[in-house]
Nucleic acid binder design. Structure first.
Length: 724
DNA sequence: CCGGTGTCGCTTACTCGACA
DNA sequence: TGTCGAGTAAGCGACACCGG
């Protein structure tokens, strides 16, 4: 082993500070304050100024020192007698042994727990601080060193304040330890013991064992024990000598008898390691400490409370230390620190035990918390043991302990998770909104448990599982969050696209609908236009026909113009405006038996008798012959020639002849309405109408049917207007 | 990608008290 | 005295996160 000339961390320097302000012990870069400083840095100032001791195994040392010194087969003596733990970086443990037989004064020996032993430089804030209490008179420490004790003691830091109180007691413990070891191994405390130690992992191990004895001694000092007897018969807890080793793998054989001997327990030794044990056996060293509750080292409530308090102190410390300060410490270092804090409080547990105990009680707390925070459920603390077991709470968590943990979990995301994945519970928490508040609250990085996550989680929202009883689901991890974010984006994108497409479709539909409407209106318009056009064309056609007709009339055709139409029951009489200049003009139109009967007067044949005899029976003095073509629905059915006989310009008698054209008119009258009679009546009525005041009373008519028409009664009679 | 860390669930082994 | 169940420390692996 080499002397480390750099100074190592000394927790005593910070013993006056609250725990959260004390640096961790493994700050190898820690630099001691200048020696010129006064005692403001504590009584250890002198230790820095003290030159390293010269290693020596000179005689004159006490039995323990000689023993351990001889076991040092190589390198330095395990007792690197540098009293002050701050003397060198190598020093981590101090053993104060009264060497009563030498000089009569109290002498101190500082045991060097070699760093090389386990690679971990142990320091014990607990006993260190207690030693510090004894350092109130550092000036007196130096004289207390015994030069006669050998050169090995020359660089001791005489922590005589503590040593002077009961050095004898410590030595007795050490001696007892050795005797116990010798007894248990059936060996003496001499060279065999040394070899035994060499067979193990080195003398440092035994040195550490001794150191722990001293630690226990120091821890028990406040109890007022002044001698061995007091310890043996006094408080039972200090009576148990802690022989735990951090590297317990190498000390199984050593510690077993010690445990049994010093614990005073009758419990059988475990025949095999616990569970999937790695061979460790920590029972002995955990017994009785701080009110241990069992031979197997069950944690008492007080111990657990101390653990929680120390954990909280460390959390505060890390929270105040800086963002990543906690990450500069390994897990073991952190738990060792907690163990030391607990040791300060009088609870002797190693870091691993603390870690496991914390895991367990925190796990219980989480389960209870998951229940307590749900309103409506019966409180865990009000449940019977049976009910607890039925509910899966197969543990017994004290309310005090629960409260103690609960106080420190205000910002613990493991307890108050931010992002949860609902794994089945409808009340799955999705407290995304909590991130902001958490981010605001998470000023530091409280390293404990999930509180350490706070700083990180506030950044990315990642977290850990929140529940141990599957009530709330799991915390979302980064992948889940990223996936959800992508999913949200995709969902939003899909929604936007769908809405856009929908809007576009609707717009397109609207456009198409409008186009359809327009086309329909256009169609209707075109229909109306067609109708109008048809009407116009029809009118045009009619007009053209009329024009053509007129043109025909003008060219000598035989069509006229309808002026009036008179309904005469089954016969209609239509007044005609005559056109004097035309040869053929419509003289009369009427309806007979539903047919339109039209009389066209052949004016160009006016006066022609066609060889017929018009025998007027009266004193007729003048005659006027007229020719008519009778059409029924456009078909010529009859030709009529009549002669108007006048007496003094007064119509007196009409004689006429009818000639059948076609087959529309029956040859003979069979009874009922006679078409021929009606046609003749229609003509006579028209003549009567034309001669209104120029007709004698009575004025008769006689019409002779040409064969094949037979005569009938209706062909003769008085001329009269049928409208009357 | 890897190591360290914190958390959690599950398991194992042990202790201890109750009970036959 | 042996058995059994409860309680629990402890081991172990998985998981997730962070930082290098």
């Amino acid at each position: 082993m080499q002397h480390n000339l750099h100074h190592r961390f000394d927790p005593n320097l910070y013993s006056h500070l609250p725990p959260h302000q004390q640096p961790l012990p493994d700050d190898t870069t820690w630099t001691p304050p200048p020696s010129t400083l006064g005692f403001a840095w504590g009584s250890t100032q002198t230790s820095y100024d003290t030159p390293p001791r010269v290693e020596s195994t000179g005689g004159g040392v006490g039995p323990m020192y000689a023993l351990l010194g001889e076991t040092r087969g190589r390198g330095r003596h395990p007792f690197d007698l540098q009293l002050s733990p701050t003397a060198t970086m190598d020093v981590s443990r101090t053993v104060l042994v009264q060497r009563s037989g030498q000089g009569g004064g109290a002498s101190t020996q500082t045991m060097h727990a070699s760093v090389l032993d386990d690679g971990v430089s142990m320091h014990r804030p607990n006993h260190m601080s207690r030693l510090a209490l004894s350092q109130a008179a550092p000036a007196g420490s130096v004289p207390c060193r015994q030069p006669a004790a050998g050169a090995a003691m020359q660089d001791q830091r005489a922590d005589v304040g503590g040593v002077a109180e009961s050095p004898r007691c410590v030595e007795c413990i050490v001696c007892r330890f050795n005797s116990l070891r010798a007894t248990s191994e059936g060996d003496g405390a001499g060279a065999a013991m040394q070899e035994r130690r060499l067979d193990l992992c080195g003398v440092a191990e035994s040195a550490r064992c001794v150191e722990r004895i001293v630690c226990r001694y120091n821890s028990s000092r406040p109890t007022g024990d002044g001698d061995v007897g007091g310890r043996e018969g006094g408080a039972s807890k200090p009576d148990h000598v802690d022989v735990e080793d951090d590297d317990a793998d190498d000390e199984d054989e050593d510690e077993a008898p010690v445990k049994e001997a010093v614990s005073g327990r009758t419990k059988k030794q475990p025949s095999k390691v616990r569970g999937k044990a790695k061979g460790k056996d920590k029972e002995g060293d955990t017994n009785d400490e701080g009110g241990g509750s069992g031979a197997r080292g069950n944690w008492s409530l007080n111990e657990s409370l101390v653990l929680v308090q120390c954990k909280r102190d460390q959390d505060d410390y890390f929270a105040n230390a800086g963002t990543n300060f906690s990450r500069m410490k390994t897990k073991d270092q952190k738990w060792m620190d907690i163990a030391k804090r607990m040791e300060k409080e009088g609870v002797r547990r190693d870091g691993e035990q603390c870690m496991k105990r914390w895991e367990n009680i925190f796990r219980w707390y989480r389960k209870v918390w998951d229940r307590e925070k749900d309103s409506g459920l019966q409180s865990y603390f009000l449940m019977t043991t049976k009910a607890r077991k039925e509910k899966g709470y197969k543990f017994n968590l004290d309310r005090t302990l629960y409260d103690a943990i609960h106080i420190m979990q205000g910002n613990n995301q493991a307890v108050h998770p931010l992002n949860l994945v609902d794994t089945g519970n409808a009340q799955g928490q999705q407290s995304q909104q909590g991130e902001q508040s958490q981010a605001a609250a998470g000023g530091g990085e409280a390293d404990t448990s999930a509180s350490e996550n706070r700083g990180a989680d506030t950044g990315d929202g990642c977290g850990r599982r929140s529940s141990s009883n599957d009530i709330q689901g799991k915390r979302k991890n980064a992948r889940q969050l990223a996936f959800e974010a992508v999913t949200d984006v995709m969902k939003t994108h899909s929604t936007v696209v769908a809405e856009s497409v929908d809007r576009a479709s609707k717009r397109q539909c609207d456009v198409l609908q409008r186009q359809c409407d327009i086309m329909e209106r256009e169609a209707r318009t075109q229909e109306r236009q067609c109708e109008v056009l048809n009407v116009g064309q029809r009118m045009l056609c009619e007009a053209l026909l009329k024009i053509v007709g007129n043109s025909e009339i003008a060219r000598g055709g035989h069509r006229g113009v309808v002026v009036t139409e008179v309904d005469i029951g089954h016969r209609n009489c239509v007044g005609v405006r005559r056109c004097e200049s035309m040869d053929i003009q419509m003289a009369l139109r009427g309806r007979v038996l539903g047919r339109t009967i039209t009389f066209y007067e052949m004016r160009h044949r006016q006066g022609e008798k066609d060889g017929r005899l018009f025998d007027f029976v009266g004193e007729v003095t003048g005659q006027e012959v007229g020719h008519y073509e009778v059409d029924a629905n456009g078909d010529t059915i009859l030709n009529v020639v009549v002669a108007l006989g006048y007496v003094d310009d007064m119509l007196r008698e009409v004689v006429g002849y009818t000639t059948k054209v076609g087959r529309a008119i029956p040859d003979r009258w069979e009874g009922g309405v006679d078409v021929l009679d009606d046609i003749v009546d229609l003509l006579m009525s028209n003549i009567a109408n034309e001669h209104d005041d120029l007709m004698t009373v009575p004025a008769d008519f006689r019409v002779w049917p040409d064969p094949p028409l037979h005569d009938r009664p209706g062909l003769r009679g008085e001329i009269r207007n049928i409208d009357e």
